[in-house]
Design a protein around this nucleic acid. Structure first.
Lengths: 186, 186
DNA sequence: TTTTTAAAATAACATACGTTACCTAACTTT
DNA sequence: AAAGTTAGGTAACGTATGTTATTTTAAAAA
């Protein structure tokens, strides 16, 4: 009896996601989504209670993308190195997403990736494969590497410095190398 | 013939500055300033052509505060170390300001502090006093230290990690120490 | 084919913001 | 003391946004 649904939930979500990808949450509003959907705002509020709910859905999709990046190569030989590179690559490929997750306060109940990704024993153990440091030393080492990695990622996400992929890998590799030497010689 | 001016330009600017200090530019609007001034919006537009002009004035005041931090101790013995600590202290004392200058895109014609503060020969030379590295080595060393410092500052500004002043100094000092050892042993 | 039901459009309301027209009144000048 | 100038208040306009009441209409069910 009713006309069939023309605008599915996922279309709305995808449009919202892409707007946020390019412009952050600042660029997101109901009329803008409607325009890109070639529709009125009505289909949006059919699928989402209000804009807040839609934003939460977008935020979750963003988190999923981040996890996808961080999991890629988690089982590789050089898993520790890959983690850092993935983090920075995410910041480069999705700067607005990186800013949302790591550089802004949101009320979108952020999962605490910082803690999850950096204080688990896994990360320390993965790093030990590379460095050969003791667990305690490795923890202190890792904090430094993580801060450095985060520093690059922030610079990349804000486009403050335009590092190429090669430069990024060199910078990270070389810094880690120097730090390892530092730890082994003191 | 006219009634005397009650609300001076500087009062308006100071109120705006303090709002931005606490809430960033997001919290700034004409009615809010008027309320804190116990006045209508009129005095604002008497002194500033429009909100954009006021924001620029606030931005300049923010930059002045940043410079004040970075200049303090520039002539000290440990000037290089002090620079990094000042940068982080600014991020800690004025997180919203730090975010505005270093973590967001603005249309408020940012002076490029990143470049000014990091690619000048002065910084490299100051660093050489500490490390004793060659000019070329010192340049590569400095990029790493700068990124690391920026990483801490970003974490502090977003309140992602709550480092005490002592922890910050230790972290920076220790990292620099390890890096120097790394550079001297390779 | 007719009826019914919900999807979508239209258009409006509410709020928040920048901005401004108009008015009131304070104070300097005469 | 009178007059004129302008600071500041009031209230409105225009725009952007979230949200929703009302209407239209497509298509399923009878």
């Amino acid at each position: 009896m009713p006309p069939r649904t023309i605008f599915e939930k996922e279309q709305v979500l995808n449009i919202a996601y892409n707007i946020v990808r390019n412009e952050g949450f600042d660029g997101l509003n109901a009329r803008r989504i409607a325009k890109e959907l070639n529709a009125s705002v009505h289909p949006i509020f059919k699928h989402f209670k209000d804009m807040e709910e839609l934003k939460k859905a977008v935020y979750e999709k963003i988190c999923a993308k981040y996890k996808e990046y961080m999991l890629s190569g988690a089982n590789e030989e050089q898993a520790y190195k890959k983690m850092g590179l993935s983090y920075i690559k995410f910041a480069k490929d999705y700067p607005e997403f990186f800013k949302i997750i790591f550089m802004q306060k949101t009320n979108l109940n952020a999962e605490n990736f910082i803690m999850a990704d950096n204080v688990g024993d896994d990360v320390i153990e993965k790093g030990q494969i590379l460095t050969g440091l003791s667990f305690e030393e490795q923890k202190k080492f890792h904090v430094k590497v993580w801060i450095f990695t985060h520093g690059i990622a922030c610079l990349v996400a804000t486009n403050t410095v335009k590092f190429s992929d090669v430069e990024i890998e060199e910078l990270l590799t070389e810094t880690v190398k120097k730090l390892i030497i530092g730890y082994k010689n003191s």
